[in-house]
Nucleic acid binder design. Structure first.
Lengths: 231, 231
DNA sequence: AGAAAACAAGAGCGGTGCTCACATTTGTTG
DNA sequence: CAACAAATGTGAGCACCGCTCTTGTTTTCT
């Protein structure tokens, strides 16, 4: 119990605001998220919440960070539940964790991976860390698989010098012991994974969703493992 | 010049509304799209536009249809510019057309393929037709390539009976002479293509965008052709 | 020419984000 | 302990939004 009672009350109010905001986000969507409604649920007059949250965008940032953290926790837990040497299994576990969490929290998923909210840009210093947890889990997995010799060489070579230069920069910035082709395939797999999840969550497949969305996703996970050459 | 002067004036006003709406969408984004602002630019009082557009959602639907049509035109033109027997080239042309149009009209792209606008669902009877033009172009291409024996057999089999049943339904509904594995790979390629474009347009790659976004996309197109087995 | 339909204007309702002046409570310091 | 300062809550207010309704005008059809 650190700090003064006022500090603790403030922390409590902050967490209440995030909780109420998440609830409104889940039930009514991002555009219907209003500080006035949060204030009402908080039992306080609308201008009072501005003591805690600078603006509506600021509340969105809190929810973005909250969502990235929850997704990151889900992904980490899913990875930890698979044997460390089962690389395709771990990649599939990441994919399933993303899809499951997205289906459970579609509005938050849309906030993180859908169209950017107009006039709002998530401040990098707050979202950079938690926002990269999923791709970090993927990259870590690929690096381990490559080091263990469990990744087939990429079928498509990287020929663009500019692209190779960009990969080199990323390689030393992230300390990635991976050749260009694997990085390129990884970026593709990353985007493709979220493309599959987004298509399903955003309803691009249509109403029928081609019969069995879960089975379709499992098949896509197998294709993803094949693209990456994981074994 | 068909119809009465009033009819022509109405058609002109309608097209003005869509044009002004597109402009606001491009400059301020979907959430900032307001009927009152459109009315101001139209030089008319706000309630007057309700004679032409039932609601703000109705205007969004008009813009959605407009966007799907423009994207469909761009894709059709891109496909037509490639020799009919160059199947990988035609698929890459579709991908480049989607990316190029999306980069040119990011707000409209977000309206079509990003998070669904909260509380708004595009009415199927108006958007179904133009909304499926891109995937129809892809499916047509794959069917022709398969018939010409220019598609390698899929590397991953479809094992789920529910999924196979869903594919059978789609096969006879769309008159698709393609085996399950090709359909599954096609759906994956479709989602992956838009995943790559969305990641770039929505800024998920980060600020640097890994050096050269265009070269990265070209590499992803090669991977896509490989996944589909096009040759 | 007269009836009917379409159109534009303006007022109005309830909602939003956000700011400000003011009163009250709480923590710190002389 | 008292006084000061900081933090917190209140209510009014501004400008904007979607949308509805009434009123007066214009155009089209019979």
């Amino acid at each position: 119990m650190p700090g003064t009672p006022r500090d603790r009350a403030r922390a409590q109010t902050m967490s209440d605001i995030v909780r109420i905001g998440r609830h409104h986000l889940a039930t009514d969507g991002a555009a219907a998220l209003s500080l006035r409604a949060v204030a009402r649920d908080l039992g306080v007059v609308s201008s009072a919440v501005y003591r805690y949250v600078k603006s509506r965008d600021d509340l969105l940032t809190l929810l973005v960070v909250d969502g990235y953290d929850e997704l990151g926790d889900a992904v980490d837990a899913a990875v930890a539940a698979v044997p460390a040497d089962d690389f395709p299994g771990r990649q599939a576990a990441i994919g399933r964790a993303v899809r499951t969490w997205g289906l459970a929290e579609p509005a938050t998923y849309a906030l993180l991976f859908g169209s950017p909210v107009p006039g709002y840009e998530a401040p990098a210093e707050q979202t950079m860390g938690p926002g990269t947890r999923v791709v970090r889990a993927l990259v870590t997995l690929w690096a381990e698989a490559y080091a263990a010799g469990r990744m087939s060489p990429p079928t498509v070579e990287v020929t663009s010098p500019a692209l190779a230069a960009g990969f080199s920069a990323a390689r030393e910035e992230l300390d990635l012991p991976l050749p260009d082709g694997v990085i390129a395939a990884g970026v593709f797999g990353w985007a493709a994974l979220f493309g599959c999840v987004s298509f399903e969550i955003f309803g691009q497949y249509g109403d029928d969703a081609l019969g069995d969305p879960a089975a379709l996703f499992e098949h896509h996970l197998e294709l993803l493992a094949a693209v990456l050459g994981l074994r």
